[in-house]
């Protein structure tokens, strides 16, 4: 006769239970719960964002049908068009727009950094009880609708407003000249939109800064530049890199600001993409442009993570 084992006395199902977070359960139960929790969210992100983004690789090489539909024919036309070979021969327009988008994003980020450092120090030096108020003052434009903030500049830059009058008084512009659409207006709009994106993370870093290092640098007769370079910059780099990513990436794809303040004269790649999905109804070309923008974005993100890691390690 077979000797009874302890396991035989237990119901079969409980023999493979595990202890998970203080609970006796079968692994399959854990897996089922896990799946229930993550499935809806992951499905939405995968099917509405990740896969369509990957599909850009395919759609970019398809043909535009006669009525703006997509035909399943492989073509390199969109690449050629992007490089400037169009119906009327070669033109630099598209390449220029791509190049301009990168330059504008870069310059906007740079200007925002230059303005954000003084602002971050100013905020960090406010008395503790007033700081929340000052932060709120900075957060309000951050949360104000982009369209409203951009069109507000149309009022300020109007030819009859004091700013334009002042410029014409200095003989920089003709009297009554409206200052938009122009490159200048695009930069004004971009910097005002993205400034809080750099200033807020930078402020968080400055607030946590160890000032004794700065004092030590001063005591050792460092020049202001060297104090900044060796005592302030390394400490604020985490905040700075967050700010740079939060500005450079969306700035490259920005389309509201150049659309309202730059007009047809100063288009960025965002406007070109919008045209393809709007009036032109040329999705394959729009997809090709989006693909280039996506690759540029990825490049910027990788560079930002690498850069901050490398400098952080030193």
């Amino acid at each position: 006769m077979k000797r009874l084992e302890r396991d035989d006395l237990l119901p079969q199902e409980t023999s493979n239970v595990i202890l998970h977070r203080g609970e006796m359960v079968r692994p399959s139960v854990i897996r089922t719960r896990q799946a229930i929790f993550v499935t809806p969210g992951l499905l939405i992100i995968i099917f509405l964002l990740a896969l369509p983004c990957l599909s850009l690789f395919v759609v970019s090489f398809l043909t535009r049908g006669e009525y703006g539909d997509i035909e399943m024919t492989f073509t390199l036309d969109n690449v050629r068009r992007m490089l400037g070979y169009g119906f009327f021969g070669w033109s630099a327009d598209n390449l220029l727009i791509l190049w301009r988008s990168v330059v504008v994003a870069f310059m906007t980020t740079l200007l925002c950094i230059l303005l954000s450092y003084p602002l971050a120090f100013f905020l960090a030096s406010r008395p503790a009880n007033k700081r929340v108020l000052w932060l709120t003052v900075l957060l309000v434009p951050f949360w104000t609708n982009l369209v409203i903030r951009t069109y507000a500049w149309l009022l300020v830059l109007d030819g009859n407003m004091p700013f334009a009058r002042f410029l014409s008084f200095l003989h920089i512009t003709e009297p009554g000249t409206t200052l938009y659409p122009s490159q200048f207006a695009v930069y004004i709009g971009m910097v005002s939109v993205f400034l809080p994106f750099v200033a807020l993370p930078l402020y968080t870093a400055v607030e946590k800064m160890d000032w004794s290092i700065v004092e030590a640098a001063h005591d050792l007769y460092s020049s202001p530049w060297r104090v900044f370079r060796h005592a302030v910059l390394p400490q604020t780099l985490p905040g700075l890199s967050v700010g740079i990513t939060m500005t450079f990436v969306p700035a490259m794809g920005m389309f509201v600001v150049p659309d309202m303040l730059g007009g047809a004269r100063y288009m960025l790649v965002g406007n070109l993409i919008q045209q393809q999905f709007g009036t032109s109804r040329d999705w394959p070309f729009g997809a090709a442009l989006s693909l280039v923008l996506m690759v540029l974005t990825l490049g910027a993100l990788v560079a930002a993570t690498r850069g901050s890691k490398k400098k952080g390690a030193r």
């Binding site: 992100i45 509405l48 964002l49 369509p52 599909s55 490259m252 920005m254 389309f255 965002g270 974005t297």
Partner: peptide, 20 residues
């Protein structure tokens, strides 16, 4: 995957949705 919606620029997000 979770950070993808946070870092994707608006306009690419919009294009992806339109395609989907």
């Amino acid at each position: 995957l979770l950070h993808l919606p946070v870092v994707t620029p608006d306009i690419i997000f919009a294009v992806a949705l339109v395609i989907a």
